[in-house]
Design a protein around this nucleic acid. Structure first.
Lengths: 116, 116
DNA sequence: TGGGATATATCCACAGTGGGTATAATTAGA
DNA sequence: TCTAATTATACCCACTGTGGATATATCCCA
């Protein structure tokens, strides 16, 4: 597994997907809805972006597909559930650090207010 | 002139260029050096990226080329100086707001510490 | 049973980027 | 004075990430 920093800057869709699965495993379609909800409707991941991002992230070891499924009465067999890996968390933290630095720069340039 | 929000998300190079010319007019090569310095060497704009970004930004009205030049003994006639426009400042502020929101999301997901 | 929402997947076109190359003027040094 | 390095702008090619469209299939409800 490579150095997390070597993945930076993360493609925006990738970072949003990592945040959407940070707290619990989710399937593709649920990730789209979660991202839309978390961003207040600002970001709507297209299906094309989502599934190609997920495929890449599986290869990179940021996500794994889980076998665990919810109780049959809440499940849908079409779904495929994804879980963030420890490495995925490291990469997400590295990207969060980079973005935090960027906001500091924006503040120094007078484009953002003094405190977040 | 369009709505500043319609330019979001800003290409990373564009946002860095806006920050580099926020405080004073700069020429192309100086922008590359300024961005490298501000990011602590993390981001090195390639010449290809820089000049294509500048061209686009001039068309979009984010930058203008200035006629004012430094005293001849400090000048270099090959240089072309760029200045951020009022609209460029609006767009930069909008992008800064978007990034600030993103860092808040990262914090809510546990990927960034509580305060910046 | 029909229709809309849910779900995954693939294809195409396009924008932004890095790296390389070209060209030229200016400056520094031998 | 000739040469080499630095500064500066511009263009080209290949690659990646993205949105939008399309395809296929299932689920749920009226």
């Amino acid at each position: 597994m490579e150095n997390p920093e070597s993945f930076l800057p993360l493609p925006p869709a990738t970072f949003h997907i990592l945040m959407a699965v940070a707290d619990e495993d989710r399937h593709g379609y649920a990730i789209i809805q979660e991202v839309e909800q978390r961003t207040g409707g600002e970001l709507r991941l297209s299906a094309g972006t989502l599934y190609r991002s997920i495929q890449r992230m599986l290869e990179q070891g940021l996500l794994v597909e889980t076998q665990e499924r919810p109780a049959p009465e809440f499940d849908d067999e079409r779904r495929r559930y994804y879980r963030i890996t420890g490495f995925g968390q490291q990469v997400a933290r590295a990207e969060a650090r980079r973005l935090t630095q960027l906001v500091k720069l924006a503040r120094a340039s007078g484009f953002a207010p003094g405190r977040v």
